[in-house]
Amino acid sequence: MPHDHSDHDHPHALLPPEPALRVKALETLLTRKGLIDPAALDEIIDTYENRIGPRNGAEVVARAWSDPDFRAALLEDATAVVAEMGFFGRQGEHMVAVENTDELHNIVVCTLCSCYPWPLLGIPPGWYKSDAYRARVVREPRKVLAEFGVELPEETAVRVWDSTAEVRYLVIPQRPAGSEGLDVDALSDLVTRDSMIGTGLAKAP
């Protein structure tokens, strides 16, 4: 593949041009220098492929829908409350929960990079990291929502949270009509990843 590095002063230009080979070359070099344990890489990957993902956040939301005391505590100090559920650590050190209502719809972005609440939602989706989302959702959130198939009533204001510090935001979507009487497990099935970022709504039962 042809490759013209625009900046030969950056050391990264010394790596092979193909991304897969670049990663492989760096891993091989660092392993030979004793700085990488490939088994540790496997462990990190297994964590984010199989153990940490948006079902964690869905469990938090379902409990907030079911238990008014839990909801109040979550809105007061999300970091402590989700930590008690076992959700804490890298990229979730400082959590704030924001609640959608008829009057206010919350959406989360990181325009400067791609900050995201990993312990609750896992690895961010491709679109969250895209230039289009980062550039546009702060300026035209309703047009972006339309691309997700979401249209808000005129009386609902939008609040976009740009994650510019180490605070991570979890959106508590509105509980869908017709979900009365469902238990926490059944409720959590209605909570989509996108609804916890604010680009979607919870599913109808």
């Binding site: 984010y48 492929e49 993902g53 948006p54 972005v109 325009t111 400067l112 896992g122 690895i123 989706p125 491709g126 679109w127 895209s130 230039d131 289009a132 989302y133 980062r134 550039a135 546009r136 959702v137 702060v138 300026r139 972006v144 691309e147 997700f148 198939g149 740009d162 989509t192 990843r193 996108d194 680009t199």
Partner: peptide, 18 residues
């Protein structure tokens, strides 16, 4: 890039794509 024009549409994707 917040506010920038010209980046096109956002493409949603399934939750199981990591």
């Amino acid at each position: 890039m917040g506010g920038r024009f010209g980046d096109g549409t956002v493409t949603p994707e399934d939750e199981d794509v990591i």
